[in-house]
Computed example of a mutant assay.
Amino acid sequence: MEKVSVNSVYSIKQVADMLDIPTVTLRAWENRYNAINPIRTDAGYRMYSMENIEDLRWLKKQVEHHHMNISQAVLMLKAREKEKQELITAPKQQAGGNIEEAFSKMTDQIYQTLYHFQGERANALIDFGFSLYGYDSMFYHVLVPVLVRVGDAWESGRATVAQEHFMTSLISQRFFQFFHLFPIFPQLPKVVAFCPEGEHHQVGLMLFSLFMRKNGAEVLYLGASTPVEGVIQVIGEQHVQIVCISITSASKVIQTDAIVSQIAKEHEQVHFVLGGKGYEMAENPAYPQWIMKEPTEKWQEWLEKHPLFRQHG
């Protein structure tokens, strides 16, 4: 069976389904207007990268929502690309090539706009960051630090509940816009991901869910503070094979271990992934075999060794 890669490219049919753009339109935009340049296989088939897909998404928005003709939209896209290349070079020259400083500056800019409820400005900055640095870099080096900073500000009283909800909600929406771009491979195990009741910090869970989704697994993301009764019902009805749970405090380990026991009693064949700082600091967890001990850069290696994914390799 074909192995699923995190660095996937997509066929014209997959892109047409993702964006709801007819294949004939995709070919016309390429051939007549040179909108994008997908790579070609040895057999001549078009294969689209995530950058190609986002460019097409942007073009569709200009045509459908801003009533621009495609030739004008393509000219704007090319201008954006030129500006992007100039801006990629500029921060490196100004900061001595230190891209981390550029990430830090963008993190601060997005945080400040969200802190002051400037949603449109924040979305514009995020869009620009995606085009400038790519999706993975923006999520891991900019948006995740923003979410961590938001959580810290709320816990310390530097941000109100309204500010925390606004900031978290907007960034979560951007996560899931990206989340649903990836195709699902039905032969892979279905995953459910949640934080137990009382756990409201879901950054780590979102990242791991995004990673699983990028690898082709269908992930049912239930989010923060989810009652276990609903989870058990979903597992049975949806034939879930992997349950991911994240907690940020070691004080929640006993409660979460009890949830794992309850789920395992109802569904004996289910595999678990237990993560978050809570399990990293746990002294005597009941299910050490399920704890995700690998850092993010090792997740792909972990996945390829997982028995439920190895059989589809």
Results as ranks from 00 to 15, higher is better:
246 S>I: 02
36 I>K: 03
59 L>E: 03
131 S>E: 11
76 M>R: 10
107 T>R: 04
257 D>A: 03
198 G>Y: 08
143 L>M: 14
13 K>Y: 13
166 F>R: 01
90 A>E: 09
263 I>P: 01
67 H>A: 09
268 E>M: 08
308 L>W: 09
168 T>S: 15
44 G>Q: 07
277 K>T: 05
282 A>W: 09
21 I>W: 12
51 E>M: 11
214 K>A: 08
221 Y>F: 15
149 R>W: 10
237 E>D: 11
214 K>R: 15
30 E>D: 12
271 H>S: 13
223 G>N: 04
10 Y>P: 01
137 S>H: 12
136 D>H: 14
260 V>H: 05
122 A>N: 03
205 L>Y: 11
219 V>L: 10
191 V>G: 05
87 L>C: 03
227 P>A: 08
36 I>T: 01
235 I>V: 14
153 A>S: 14
84 K>N: 05
210 L>K: 00
5 S>A: 12
105 K>N: 03
91 P>M: 02
278 G>P: 02
27 R>H: 13
294 E>C: 06
118 Q>I: 02
153 A>M: 13
130 F>A: 01
229 E>R: 07
68 M>Q: 10
146 V>L: 07
240 V>P: 02
108 D>M: 07
53 I>A: 10
16 A>L: 05
284 N>K: 11
228 V>T: 07
300 Q>E: 15
93 Q>W: 03
247 I>Y: 10
212 M>H: 04
281 M>K: 13
183 P>G: 12
85 Q>G: 04
244 C>T: 06
130 F>I: 08
208 F>K: 00
88 I>Q: 14
186 P>V: 08
141 H>Y: 15
38 P>N: 07
267 H>E: 01
201 H>C: 06
274 L>K: 01
181 L>H: 15
41 T>Q: 08
69 N>M: 08
56 L>D: 02
76 M>C: 10
83 E>W: 07
235 I>D: 01
271 H>K: 10
69 N>T: 02
42 D>C: 01
136 D>G: 10
85 Q>A: 11
140 Y>P: 00
48 Y>C: 03
133 Y>P: 00
262 Q>G: 01
148 V>I: 15
46 R>Y: 13
178 F>L: 12
194 F>Y: 10
170 L>D: 02
307 P>T: 11
296 T>V: 12
142 V>W: 05
86 E>R: 04
184 I>G: 09
151 G>F: 09
15 V>D: 03
182 F>M: 07
102 A>S: 07
104 S>E: 09
24 V>P: 00
35 A>I: 03
39 I>M: 15
187 Q>H: 15
162 A>P: 01
59 L>M: 10
269 Q>M: 10
135 Y>N: 04
197 E>K: 06
93 Q>K: 05
254 I>F: 14
192 V>D: 04
198 G>A: 06
228 V>K: 00
298 K>L: 11
296 T>E: 13
203 V>Q: 06
120 E>A: 14
177 Q>S: 14
125 L>R: 04
246 S>T: 04
228 V>A: 11
231 V>I: 05
14 Q>N: 07
292 M>N: 07
82 K>T: 06
84 K>P: 00
167 M>P: 00
127 D>G: 06
123 N>K: 12
104 S>T: 05
